[in-house]
Simulated scan of single mutants.
Amino acid sequence: MLYLDYCATTPTRPEVIRSVTEVMTAHFGNPSSLHRLGLEAEKLVAKARALAAGTLGCKPQELIFTGSGSESNNLAIKGTALRFRNRGRHVITSAVEHASVYESVMQLADLGFETTILPVDETGQVRLTDVEAALRDDTILVSLMYVNNEMGRIQPVADVGRLLADRPRTLFHIDAIQAYGKLDCDVSRLGADLLSVSAHKFGGPKGTGLLYRREGVELLPLVSGGGQEQGLRSGTENVPLLVGMAKACRLAAEEREAGTLRLRALQRRLLDRLAALPGVKLTTRPDRLEDYAPQLVHFTVPGLRPEVVVHALEEREIYISTRSACSSDATDPSRVLLAMGLPREEAAAGLRVSYTPALTESEIDRFADELGQALARLQPNGRRKGDD
């Protein structure tokens, strides 16, 4: 098997599985209980929080544990808007955001908030001048992703953070779910008031996420109850998974610099091989690699339905994706690629390959060879020769 869909999810790291198993076995107490078992569990949660906070350069009390990256995004966006709706009702985001951000903003629009959806250039980047032009006195939130989950474009979030530094009434949320573990996510450097992370994107367990909330920033909780997570996310903490996420955070931080260098080398080789294949159009630009995250390559095959290519490779035990896993079953053209100005035929034909530093050059060559053979077998209408 050759798995090349790491942006969708990653296998849980063995070290993380061991930590989760140990805590599940020996520390089953409720962290809110007053007896010894509860206090032991509470200490584990506090240690996990401190460890994860260290990788973001923030204080432990500035981290809120959530159940996913999508929940972190929802809490950041809706929690800010609902808390400060009397201050202003204008929210800014972009046309290429993950569905958990984009749809949250659309829900706010249904509730009477005014929204600005920023365009992007032909590479998928938000222009800083557009952000500045969209700001109003009643803008309460700007929410942008650090790395686009579909085609890997890095957004100028640090520049936006500096732009908003002298606007304390406008909060800045960064969706860093595809950036954490690959790019520098120090919250002070980025100027973030809020920042989202999802554990299963870097070897942690599914069902766990983080929301950094700068000290002093108030949010309206979306889940009410027992007051856990500083009253912002009630519900008994999943201690084993939180400990596992913290372990994954530590490993990702330790390996980030060396891993990023390796990922960039793999990216160059993959782009070279793909560029030589007939019918393939690269969306990731080889001449501007510094503008793209190193862990994925995006391309289109106009004239072929992407799911046909995906299933042709699956027959050879090779796994890639068409777009974000949250919208991979959609048949419409990609909202992200359309926003970049691609024709509908190309926007409906995107494919994403994502990988880890453990990928080898021979595996890249195997993928490229198998892809070339699959494309040669497929007719322009997406059917195999002989199906008629």
Rank of each mutant, 00 (worst) to 15 (best):
A246I: 10
K247N: 02
K247G: 00
A248M: 02
A248T: 05
A248E: 07
A248N: 09
A248I: 02
C249Q: 00
C249F: 12
C249A: 10
C249M: 03
C249Y: 04
R250G: 14
R250M: 12
R250A: 14
L251M: 12
L251Q: 10
L251F: 09
L251C: 03
L251H: 11
A252V: 04
A253K: 09
A253T: 08
A253W: 12
A253S: 09
A253C: 05
E254Q: 15
E254N: 15
E254T: 15
E254L: 15
E255K: 07
E255T: 15
R256F: 11
R256K: 14
R256W: 14
R256H: 14
A258Y: 02
A258I: 01
A258R: 03
G259R: 15
G259N: 15
G259K: 14
G259T: 14
T260A: 07
T260L: 03
L261R: 15
L261G: 02
R262E: 07
R262D: 00
R262F: 04
L263S: 12
L263M: 13
L263W: 03
R264V: 04
R264N: 06
A265F: 01
A265R: 11
L266H: 14
L266R: 04
Q267S: 02
Q267M: 05
Q267C: 04
R268W: 05
R268T: 14
R268M: 13
R268Y: 01
R269A: 08
R269N: 04
L271V: 09
L271C: 05
L271T: 02
L271F: 11
L271Q: 04
D272A: 10
D272G: 09
D272L: 03
R273M: 03
R273K: 10
R273P: 05
L274H: 12
L274W: 09
L274P: 02
A275G: 05
A275N: 05
A276D: 11
A276Q: 15
L277M: 07
L277F: 05
P278L: 08
P278A: 13
G279L: 12
G279V: 12
V280T: 07
V280M: 06
K281N: 07
K281R: 14
L282D: 01
L282E: 04
L282M: 12
L282A: 05
L282F: 10
T283K: 12
T283S: 02
T283R: 15
T284R: 01
T284Q: 02
R285L: 11
R285Q: 13
R285M: 01
R285C: 08
P286Y: 00
P286M: 00
D287C: 07
D287R: 15
D287N: 11
D287W: 08
D287T: 09
R288I: 07
R288A: 13
R288D: 10
R288Y: 03
